[in-house]
Simulated assay, not measured.
Amino acid sequence: EEFNSGFGSHTPMVLGQAKVVRYFPNYERTLNLAKTIIKDKLSVRSKADKVIDLSKDEKIEKIMRAETCEELHKIVGEDFWVATWCDSNAFEGKRLEGTRITCIQKPGRLGYDFAIRTPCTPARWSDFDEEMTSAWEALCNAYCGESYGSTELEALETVRDAILRMTYYWYNFMPLARGTAVTGFVVLLGLLLAANMEFTENIPKGLQVDWEAILNVEPGSFVGSVKSWLYPSLKINTSWRDHPDISSAFSTTGSVVAALSTYNDN
């Protein structure tokens, strides 16, 4: 039942009168993206999922001048949401539903909740399943050709781009209520390492990779943004070939769970 109704993650930037420290740095970009989407669609959706027409009374012009979620809410006149989109790489001209930017007034004078909510309805799940399957096949094709086993960074650029494109769709899919971001980045690092490339630096301060994907409607923009700091920090590393195969080191599901549940304070 939850799946059919579209359960998903909820990530607030503003909660009433409080700014959420971890996510508020994305507030301005998200607000501007919401305004751009409204200008494109000339409407938003209400809490009851009804279309709210904003094409009259110069509302679009007022919306484009809004500088806060409070101003935006007052122009719309009620709680609302708009959905971002992702341009498909597998199906020309297709747009996948990204995340939903929501603006909800709290009772009294307690401010507004401004957040992103990502639904995982069956239809959306199916769309991203097809898209990520295609992205995975593109990655396999990129690496299994002349690039296979290469230890030359220049020869692996197509592989790197394919890894980032798949990561882009994973972040926008956001199938986990919590943990999508770290899971996506760990897989990204693992895929790079499997192709003999190791990330040797840190993510730039103040940057959240998943938000870079969420706030870019086109995968190429995300790839261009991330590669600017990721690619210069990649070094060739083939040491993983000397490690034992995971299936032999952890032969049962129980041993895998035990390994993942073990930590050391030292």
Rank of each mutant, 00 (worst) to 15 (best):
G184V: 06
M174I: 09
L234V: 06
I52K: 01
V159M: 10
L153E: 13
S55L: 04
L234F: 06
S5H: 12
Y169T: 04
V187F: 13
R95G: 00
K205G: 10
K59N: 08
N26Y: 12
E1Y: 15
V44L: 03
C144W: 14
L72E: 02
P122R: 07
T36K: 12
L230M: 09
I203V: 15
R160L: 11
G16F: 03
D57N: 12
G224Y: 08
K205T: 12
I52W: 01
R109F: 07
K35T: 02
I214F: 05
N4P: 00
G220R: 07
G111L: 07
S261L: 10
S5I: 13
L189G: 05
L176Q: 09
R22C: 03
R241N: 09
C69A: 12
T183Y: 01
T151Y: 09
F91T: 15
G224D: 13
V186R: 07
K39E: 14
P232S: 06
E71H: 06
N216M: 03
L215N: 04
Y148I: 10
L96W: 05
P232E: 08
A195C: 15
P122T: 04
S228R: 13
Y143L: 13
Y231L: 11
N89S: 15
Q105N: 10
H243G: 05
S225Q: 11
S251C: 06
E198R: 13
A138P: 00
T253A: 13
L54G: 03
